[in-house]
């Protein structure tokens, strides 16, 4: 029982880290730019398909595809932002939802047309496969890798936002756009870069997720729900909030499926409801 509990905690942590990578970008852009981007997981899906394509059709090694997944998703988001999203920054939430959910359906259909509706296979390199057995607890190498990656990314992200001049300019622009512009800060540019960064991380998350949750065209829609839960439970715009929320939800999802298989998939919603009843603005949210 104790042993399985550690196993569930470990798997839940790894799953939570994955959810974190997928959602942190949305939390930042929603919190900062007030733009409701329901197509966020589309960028995750793009990342996933980039990795699959590069590995299976072009023979790239798995690790080499990860930066590509990040870059292609980030680049795609810049195209979306320039051509569509920026026109709706001052529109109502409903307009933004309609546009972006429409994009989700388009992306789901495009992926099905290009790749079919089957689950995409991914062949991890041997050094990422297998597991250790630590005092009876099974520690999967890939899950360990996931956790390590996420920690590195979190540290880099917080470092960039808190300790660089660019990060300070982004925070200044979030606090007071007009004053930031009045001091020569290119607010639109700073937001576009941040948006691309968040989408790139979703792309990376999508690539890393294939081995754990699989990849098919429904990804953009299926994971939207999880990502929205993470963002609302964590609190808009809070990186720490997203991290904590993602871990809590990852662990409760795993625990639910393991201990209460009959209601397993519902536990995550119960956790969300109780957390939001306790703190309506999210764990670390300010509004």
């Amino acid at each position: 029982m104790i042993v399985s509990m550690f196993g569930v905690l470990f798997d839940g942590l790894a799953y939570g880290m994955l959810l974190f990578l997928l959602s942190v970008g949305l939390s930042v852009t929603l919190g900062m730019m007030n733009f409701v981007n329901l197509a966020h997981c589309t960028f995750g899906m793009i990342g996933g398909y980039v990795t699959v394509t590069l590995m299976n059709s072009m023979g790239w090694p798995f690790l080499a595809t990860l930066p590509a997944a990040f870059l292609v998703a980030a680049a795609a988001s810049v195209v979306f932002e320039r051509t569509m999203f920026r026109r709706l920054y001052r529109s109502t939430d409903l307009d933004q939802c309609l546009l972006t959910i429409g994009l989700v359906f388009v992306s789901v259909a495009s992926a099905a047309w290009l790749y079919g509706t089957i689950q995409q296979p991914v062949n991890l390199p041997s050094y990422l496969r297998g597991s250790y057995n630590v005092m009876g607890v099974t520690i999967g190498v890939y899950r360990l890798f996931l956790i390590g990656m996420s920690i590195v990314i979190t540290v880099a992200l917080v470092g960039a936002l808190e300790y660089t001049r660019f990060g300070a300019q982004v925070r200044a622009a979030v606090d007071n756009q007009r004053m930031a512009r009045g001091l020569g800060i290119n607010v639109d540019g700073a937001f576009a870069v941040t948006f691309a960064l968040g989408s790139g991380l979703a792309g990376l998350g999508g690539a890393l997720a294939i081995d754990i949750v699989g990849l098919d065209p429904s990804f953009a829609l299926a994971y939207l729900v999880y990502v929205l839960i993470v963002v609302s439970v964590g609190g808009l715009g809070s990186i720490a909030g997203s991290l904590v929320a993602a871990i809590v939800l990852g662990i409760s999802d795993m625990a639910g499926k393991y201990y209460f298989p009959e209601i397993g998939s519902f536990l995550i919603y119960l956790v969300m409801l109780s957390l939001l009843m306790w703190r309506p603005v999210g764990l670390f949210g300010k509004r």
């Binding site: 001049r165 300070a168 925070r171 606090d175 007071n176 004053m179 930031a180 001091l183 020569g184 800060i185």
Partner: peptide, 28 residues
């Protein structure tokens, strides 16, 4: 602003979540 016009707003509009030093460096 970059062309050389500096503005001090009536309400001061200090960036509340930035440190004093960051308030300066973002504009430098």
């Amino acid at each position: 602003a970059r062309a050389g016009i500096g503005w001090v707003a009536q309400e001061r509009e200090i960036f509340a979540n930035l440190t004093v030093e960051e308030n300066l460096t973002v504009a430098a």
